[in-house]
Design a binder for these strands. Sequence first.
DNA 1: GTCTATAAGATGATAGAC
DNA 2: GTCTATCATCTTATAGAC
Lengths: 179, 179
Amino acid sequence: MPTAQTILDSAEAQMRARGYNDVSYRNIADALGMKSASLHYHFASKTDLGVALVRRYAENFRAAYDAQIQGNSAPLATLDIFIALHRQALAEQELICLCAVLGAERGSLPEAINDEVRAFFIGNINILTQIFNNAGRPKPERAAKASVSALEGAMIVAGVNGDMDVFDATAELVRTQLL
Amino acid sequence: MPTAQTILDSAEAQMRARGYNDVSYRNIADALGMKSASLHYHFASKTDLGVALVRRYAENFRAAYDAQIQGNSAPLATLDIFIALHRQALAEQELICLCAVLGAERGSLPEAINDEVRAFFIGNINILTQIFNNAGRPKPERAAKASVSALEGAMIVAGVNGDMDVFDATAELVRTQLL
DNA sequence: GTCTATAAGATGATAGAC
DNA sequence: GTCTATCATCTTATAGAC
């Protein structure tokens, strides 16, 4: 595996647990048995690292979604795939969404990173708008905005409370929009 | 106004915009025209400051809620007050909920602070559980968990996207549970 | 590509004068 | 209560050897 990818892997895991500002080049280097100076060869600045990280995160999410929807699934089945994609890492590794973390720290982040976070949210809103639209729901974009918000918030509250039922109850509310 | 309160005021405004880890004793002191050493007289450690901050935030929220519900309002009217309490600071000052920010940074915070954040979420879930219960809704606690999650997430996504409609669309979804 | 060495600045925190 | 002065440590980042 290319070193740049292992750097992003470590950065992602740490930032999803502790936030952008608590993760340093040293933290990441230590976790990989490297020196912090070496990381600057792959990502000249922390901003570069952050931008690359969110971009990869969004691409991976989209790729996983595209791989799981087989052509013309029913809207509810497609929504359940979208929900499951959010649920996974939270249940298995207690990791919340990278963009929920970065979105909460927005005021301290370089605008280039905020732009990528926004693109992730808008991309997900677009995915869900299409699903709700296919189901013939009125105002599909508003349903999509509410769904993205609910699921992002659910990861944070479920994480703090140590209660996966918080996530599942929220997912149920999101699903009612297609029932 | 007591100095301790003005310190908390500045800390709250800054942390709700930039996160816990990007706000320092120096930042707060500068904003107040003081020296960082002086802050340690009022809050010996940053953990003490954080705990006091979340505790005051939860108390203020609860007091504002109690002041606005007049005795026996209808469930939907009461829910709208709860929603409006979340909407205010976001619309007027672009400040998201303190506990949404701290919840996102959970893995880097002292456990004493995480405990206060959890108490805030549980307190709000209890408030909403009572509202949904009064309305005769089945599984009122699950509706409450979903509502808290949705509103916390809505503040983050609305903030990043610069789109208050994200919040309002989410609030609408929360309200459907009483329609 | 990775290292050592280093820079300039920020951080939470303390001691002690006023 | 607030200050000056100071501390040990951490931060992002660079220069240059290997």
